[in-house]
Design a protein around this nucleic acid. Structure first.
Length: 265
DNA sequence: ATGTCACTACTTTAGTGA
């Protein structure tokens, strides 16, 4: 089973890129972020024609998240993260596909630091921690997938010094993410590629992709039982090189049907 | 500070968020 996360940076503006990638990669499940359109503008027909059922949580202009499932309809379980009822931003959607709870998220960017946007990001991270702990207590298979807007460690950024005071890399943000993962989640890409430089995002500015000046922002966190089924975790880096593409590349994992034996087990 | 995108409303160009 192949499960992906992809910040499309405008689901309508990038529809051709998304459809091309779906056809080439054929993921079973996809969490999408930055739809950048209201619910009514979600391109459900084109996505269905590509063979995917979908649930989505849109918003005019900004944010917006969706979950796609090949040849089936995802079973919607939640829109929005609990903890701040007045929060209007569409940043969390959750659905069950093949018995797995998929939490699709688009964490606030948080820039500029300091300021109210940064404070909102820290609150959102705390809300995510609280809710993620509840999910783990259910003891069911869960994947939290999305654009976390967090650079977890120095290995995940081309030039750490330049990003020290950026909301993606501030110490308190990394600390909050570290606590979240420490609840018992497995960062799938790191699990299979420890010590390797892997990026999922390259700025549009200054030929960042050409220089491989990237950041690792898009993550798939697996509940303990699912971590035992993890066989592959990759970034579809080539997609970032396509015309009219998103500034993020898709990230995907492969899960086996049952627990597998790995060296460190 | 800069750079480059998508999106929106509307003075089809300028704001804004990333």
């Amino acid at each position: 089973m192949k499960i992906a996360t992809y910040n499309v940076n405008g689901v309508n503006g990038r529809l051709k890129v998304l459809l091309r990638w779906l056809e080439e990669a054929r993921p079973d499940v996809v969490a999408l972020q930055e739809l950048k359109g209201p619910d009514a503008r979600f391109p459900v027909q084109e996505i269905e024609r590509a063979g995917y059922g979908a649930v989505w949580h849109g918003q005019k202009s900004w944010n917006g998240v969706a979950i796609l499932a090949r040849d089936q309809e995802p079973l919607l379980t939640r829109k929005g993260l609990p903890g701040e009822p007045k929060d209007e931003q569409s940043r969390y959607i959750e659905a069950i596909v093949d018995g797995i709870v998929i939490g699709g998220l688009y964490l606030p960017n948080g820039n500029p630091y300091p300021g109210p946007k940064f404070d909102y990001k820290l609150r959102w991270l705390q809300r995510l921690q609280d809710y993620a702990a509840e999910l783990l207590e259910l003891d069911v298979p869960v994947i939290l997938a999305g654009d976390f807007n967090v650079i977890p460690t120095e290995l995940d950024v081309y030039k750490p010094e330049r990003w020290r005071n950026d909301a993606l890399f501030r110490a308190e943000v990394r600390e909050s993410y570290r606590k979240l993962v420490g609840q018992g989640w497995a960062d799938a890409v790191r699990e299979l590629h420890p010590g390797e430089r892997i990026y999922t995002f390259w700025d549009y500015f200054r030929n960042a992709y050409g220089r491989d000046a990237g950041l690792r922002l898009d993550h798939l966190l697996l509940s303990p039982g699912l971590a035992k089924r993890l066989t592959k975790a990759e970034v579809d880096k080539r997609v970032r090189g396509w015309e009219h593409t998103s500034d993020h590349a898709p990230v995907w994992i492969e899960l086996s049907e049952s627990a597998i034996k790995r060296r460190d087990d």
